[in-house]
Nucleic acid binder design. Structure first.
Length: 569
RNA sequence: UGGGGUGUCGUCAAGUGGCAAGACACGGGUUUUUGGAGCCCGCAUUCGGAGGUUCGAAUCCUCCCACCCCAGCCA
C-alpha cells in the first residue's frame, strides 16, 4: 500500500457489519447504542466506545442510541445524566431523538420476567445472599440447586408480585433465571435477574421496589430498541451466552448481536472509575474536571479539542487484545489539531528583565506579528515593543553549554518580530548571585527581525514589553503518575504510591502580551516556543488571567540536553 | 487443576496460504524569523515457543508457554 492510497483498514467489528450488510442481515439496518450507567463521569475510554458506536452508525446510514443503563438506583444520580449528555455532545455526536433510559422499560421488563416465570424459566429464590454464594460453587466445582428451584409456577408468580408490592425486605427474595447450576460459565448458574431494593429511583421515583439486573435488562433493552449490533467490552464475553439465552427464551422478534472489544488503557494514567473517584475523594486531584484527569471534562478543561480526541480514537484502532496506548499519541493528536487552529501569542513563563540600553526611554513601537503561520487567513496583530522587556529565564545562560543557541554574554539573537539584540552586561543580586537583569543593545536596522546584511542569528526568542504585558497565572501539567502502568503493584490502593508529586506546577508571575486582555475562557493559544495553553474556564477572570498548559511543543533542545545528561562527553 | 479470551516492531495495529501496511515513539538529514510546523530517510529476514502439513505458513494442524476476564442481590 502506498502512502497516498493508504487508509485506516476496517477493524474486526466494521468487518462483521460490512459482512452482515452484504448478506442483507437486519434488512440493511445498522443500529448501535452507547449505554452508560449514570454513576460517574465519562473518560477517554468511554470516548473510544462513543466514537465506535456513533461512528459505525454514521458510516452506515444507521443510528446510534444514547441509552442510560439506570437499573441500580443505589449508585446512580441525575447529575451524571446531564454530564454524560454534555460530554457526548461536546465530542460532536448527536443521538437525535434516540435518547432512552432502561428505566423507561421497567414495565415491559417486569412483564418479560413474568413470562419467564410462566415458562418455568425463572423462580423466586429465598436463600440469603450468603447461601446463594455458597450454592454457586466455585470456578472448578459445580454449584448446587437452590431448594427453591422447583417452586411451582403459581407460587413464583405470587411471590414475585408480592416482591413488587413491597411486602418483603431487601435481600429476602430474589428472582433467578433457571438455567444450569453446573455450567462451567458462572454467569449461567441461575443468575439473579430481579432484586428487591426499597429505594427510590432518580427517574421512576417510588414506583418500584424491585429492579432488574444488568444481564436481564441490557439484552431486552437492545431488543426493544431494535439494536442490531450491541458492542461492549471484553469482560462481557462470558455474559454473551446469557444475553442470548434471555432473548431466546422470550422469543423476541429482534435479537441483536453482542460483539466485544478491548477497552482502552492509556499510559501514565488510570481508567477505572473507582480509582479515579478515589483520586478525587482523597484530594490527589482537585475534582473530576482537574486537567490532569483522563475524564472528558478534565481533558476539555485542559484544552483538548473534540477533534483531537476523535482523531485519537480513530488512530488507536479496535481489537480484542488488551493493550495500553502510549499517551504520546494523544498528545500528538492535540498538537496536530492545535498547530493548525490555535493563534500564536507570546507569553513569558519565568520572566527575566531585559533593558535595551540604546533604545529611547519613552519610545514604544507597534510591531506586526503573524497569528498563525500555518494559516495566513488568521491574519496578524500588533505587539508593543519598548526599552524594557521580559524574556524567558531559560533563554539566557551566563556560561552556555555546547549546542546552546540562545542568549549569552556577547551573543546576538533575534527577538521574534522585533529586533536583533546583543547582551552586553548582566546585573546580579548581590546576595544570591542570581541574574536579575540583562543589559542589551539592539540593532535598529533589524526591525521586524531581518537584517539588511543577511547576517544569521542562531536563535529567535519570544518576549513581552514589561510595561505593556499582562500578569498571568499559568498551570503546567505533567503525567499524573510516574509509572507508565500505575497499577503495576497489584495490591489495589497502592496505585497512589505512583502518583507524580510534580504533576502540577503553578507559575504566578508570568507575563503575556496585551492582546490577551480579553481572552475568553476556554480559548486556546500557542505560546510561541512553549506549547499550547487554554484560558481556564473556572478560575480565569478579568482580574487575573489563568492558563492551563494543554501540551508542550515538541522540544528538540530538551532532547539534546537529556542526551547530554545521559552520556556526558 | 473449570470456562471464556488474547499473543505480529518500544507502543498501538493491518494481515484470513503467495513471501510483514500504517501510525506514535525513536534516530538521522533538509528547511525555517517558533530548537515549533513541514519535507526526506532509517527503524520486525520475521509474527509467544516447538514440531508438523505444503512448492510455499504470521495465516492450516498438534503440543506447549504467557497474559487477561469470570465465583456482586454492580454494570
Amino acid at each position: 500500500m502506498t502512502k497516498k492510497d493508504s487508509h485506516p483498514s476496517f477493524d474486526f467489528i466494521r468487518n462483521i457489519i460490512a459482512e452482515d450488510l452484504s448478506i442483507n442481515k437486519n434488512e440493511g439496518r445498522v443500529v448501535t447504542r452507547f449505554p452508560p450507567e449514570p454513576n460517574g463521569y465519562l473518560h477517554i475510554g468511554h470516548a473510544k466506545s462513543i466514537c465506535l458506536n456513533f461512528g459505525i452508525a454514521e458510516e452506515n446510514n444507521g443510528v446510534c442510541h444514547l441509552r442510560f443503563d439506570d437499573t441500580n438506583p443505589s449508585k446512580e444520580d441525575i447529575e451524571y445524566i446531564e454530564s454524560i449528555k454534555a460530554d457526548v455532545k461536546w465530542l460532536g455526536f448527536d443521538w437525535g431523538k434516540h435518547l432512552y433510559y432502561a428505566s423507561d422499560y421497567f414495565d415491559q421488563l417486569y412483564e418479560y420476567a413474568v413470562q419467564l416465570i410462566k415458562k418455568g424459566k425463572a423462580y423466586v429464590c429465598s436463600l440469603s445472599p450468603e447461601k446463594i454464594k455458597e450454592y454457586r460453587g466455585t470456578l472448578t466445582e459445580p454449584g448446587k440447586d437452590s431448594p427453591y428451584r422447583s417452586r411451582p409456577v403459581e407460587e413464583n408468580l405470587d411471590l414475585f408480585e408480592r416482591m413488587r408490592a413491597g411486602e418483603f425486605e431487601d435481600g429476602s427474595h430474589i428472582l433467578r433465571a433457571k438455567i444450569d447450576m453446573a455450567s462451567p460459565n458462572l454467569n449461567m448458574r441461575d443468575p439473579a435477574i430481579y432484586r428487591i431494593r426499597r429505594m427510590s429511583h432518580h427517574r421512576t421515583g417510588d414506583k418500584w421496589c424491585v429492579y432488574p439486573m444488568y444481564d436481564f435488562t441490557h439484552c431486552l433493552s437492545d431488543s426493544i430498541e431494535g439494536v442490531t449490533h450491541s458492542i461492549c467490552t471484553l469482560e462481557f464475553q462470558d455474559h454473551r451466552p446469557l444475553y442470548d439465552w434471555v432473548l431466546d427464551q422470550l422469543n423476541v422478534k429482534c435479537h441483536p448481536q453482542q460483539i466485544e472489544f478491548a477497552r482502552l488503557n492509556l499510559s501514565y494514567t488510570l481508567m477505572s472509575k473507582r480509582k479515579l473517584a478515589k483520586l478525587v475523594g482523597s484530594g490527589a486531584v482537585l475534582g473530576w474536571d482537574d486537567p490532569r484527569m483522563p475524564t472528558i471534562c478534565g481533558l476539555r478543561r485542559r484544552g483538548y479539542t473534540p477533534n483531537a480526541i476523535r482523531d485519537f480514537c480513530e488512530r488507536i484502532g479496535v481489537a480484542k487484545r488488551d493493550s495500553t496506548v502510549d499517551v504520546a499519541l494523544l498528545e500528538h493528536c492535540v498538537r496536530q489539531d492545535l498547530n493548525k487552529h490555535a493563534p500564536r501569542i507570546m507569553g513569558v513563563l519565568r520572566p527575566l528583565r531585559v533593558v535595551i540600553e540604546n533604545y529611547p526611554e519613552d519610545q514604544v513601537e507597534s510591531l506586526e506579528a503573524i497569528n498563525n503561520p500555518e494559516d495566513p487567513g488568521m491574519g496578524s496583530r500588533k505587539v508593543p515593543f519598548s526599552r524594557v522587556l521580559y524574556i524567558e529565564q531559560e533563554d539566557f545562560r551566563e556560561d552556555p553549554p555546547k549546542k546552546y543557541f540562545r542568549l549569552a554574554p556577547g551573543r546576538e539573537v533575534r527577538l521574534r518580530y522585533a529586533y536583533y539584540i546583543k547582551c552586553v552586561d548582566m546585573v546580579k543580586d548581590e546576595q544570591t548571585g542570581e541574574i536579575i537583569e540583562l543589559r542589551c543593545t539592539y540593532d535598529p536596522e533589524t526591525r521586524g527581525g531581518g537584517s539588511p546584511d543577511k547576517r544569521k542569528v542562531k536563535a529567535t526568542l519570544h518576549w513581552v514589553s514589561a510595561a505593556h504585558s499582562l500578569r498571568a497565572e499559568v498551570r503546567l501539567y505533567d503525567h499524573l503518575f510516574l509509572k507508565a502502568n500505575p497499577d503495576e503493584l497489584k495490591n489495589d490502593d497502592n496505585f497512589k504510591a505512583n502518583l507524580n508529586p510534580n504533576s502540577l506546577e503553578t507559575l504566578t508571575s508570568c507575563r503575556v502580551e496585551p492582546s490577551l486582555a480579553n481572552a475568553s475562557p476556554g480559548s486556546l493559544y500557542q505560546f510561541e516556543r512553549q506549547g499550547y495553553f487554554c484560558v481556564d474556564t473556572q478560575d480565569s477572570s478579568d482580574k487575573l488571567l489563568v492558563f492551563n498548559r494543554t501540551v508542550t511543543l515538541r522540544d528538540t533542545w530538551a532532547k539534546i540536553q537529556k542526551a547530554m545528561k545521559n552520556k556526558p562527553r
